[in-house]
Simulated scan of single mutants.
Amino acid sequence: MLDRTSTLFSHVKAGEGDYVSGGLRDFFLYRDLGIAQATHGKVIAHLVKANMPPEEGTGWHRHEADFQIVIMLKGWARFMYEDKETLVEAGDCVHQRPGISHYLFDYSPDMEYLEIVSPADFKSIDVEPVCEIPKPTPWV
């Protein structure tokens, strides 16, 4: 049975909330969607958008999380998921299985995605490189 008492109703309108720096990556901006507060930390949902050109990318890492999806809303991004290059374009949804080693190394200037992760206070752990990373596409 669904427990309706441990979470709160939440509605964040399109114009509410600013994109801010200070998130997981300095070269992205983040807009909180109020889900972490509504779920008492069970889930986080935020919009992420490009802020600076991809110079070094995220580096190889994995997340200590039970669940993570990325839904690309605008533009594109190129990831390495273990040794497989993956182009994620607007409209695509990626489920990152728990513990998968990955590296976001390239993205378009208009890239914007929705990320949903559980728990809200998930950890990002640096890992040893899995393979060589292709060069990012220079922004013009």
Rank of each mutant, 00 (worst) to 15 (best):
G99R: 09
R97F: 14
Y113D: 00
K13L: 11
P134L: 14
M72N: 02
K74I: 06
Y30N: 02
A50G: 03
L24P: 05
G91H: 11
Y19W: 10
E89S: 09
A45M: 06
G17V: 02
D110F: 04
A77G: 11
I35R: 00
V48W: 00
A77H: 01
D110R: 01
Y107I: 00
G41N: 05
V130C: 08
L104T: 03
P53C: 06
S118G: 14
P119N: 07
E82A: 15
H63A: 10
Y113H: 09
T5I: 09
Y103Q: 07
S108V: 05
K135E: 15
F122N: 04
Y103F: 11
A38Y: 00
F27I: 02
M80V: 10
K123W: 12
P98C: 05
S101K: 13
G34F: 04
A77I: 02
T7C: 11
H11S: 12
V20H: 07
A36E: 06
T39G: 05
K123G: 10
D92A: 12
K84C: 12
W60I: 06
D26T: 13
S118N: 06
L47W: 02
E55Y: 07
E132H: 09
A65N: 15
P98T: 11
C131L: 12
D32V: 04
D26K: 12
S21G: 15
P134N: 10
I71A: 08
G23V: 05
E64V: 14
F105W: 06
P53V: 00
S108A: 08
I35F: 04
D92Q: 02
H102Q: 01
K13Y: 10
H95I: 13
R31K: 14
V130S: 05
M80R: 00
P54E: 00
C93L: 15
E64I: 15
D18A: 13
G91D: 09
V88R: 04
G17E: 01
L87T: 12
A120Q: 10
N51Y: 09
P138Y: 03
K74M: 12
S124W: 08
R25D: 09
P53H: 08
G57K: 07
L87F: 03
D18K: 11
C131H: 08
Q37Y: 07
Q68H: 15
E112K: 01
R78G: 06
L29I: 02
P53Q: 12
I35M: 08
L29K: 03
H40E: 09
L114W: 05
R78I: 02
G75W: 03
Y19G: 05
G59D: 07
R31W: 02
C131W: 08
T137Y: 00
F122K: 08
L24M: 11
K84N: 13
E132C: 13
Y81A: 08
T58Y: 00
D110I: 06
P134G: 09
R4V: 15
Y107P: 00
D121R: 14
E82D: 15
N51R: 06
Y113V: 08
R97K: 15
E89V: 11
L104H: 07
E115K: 06
E112Q: 08
E132V: 12
F9D: 12
V70W: 00
M52F: 11
L47K: 00
L8C: 12
F9S: 13
R25Q: 12
H61I: 10
I125D: 12
S21T: 08
I125H: 13
T5K: 13
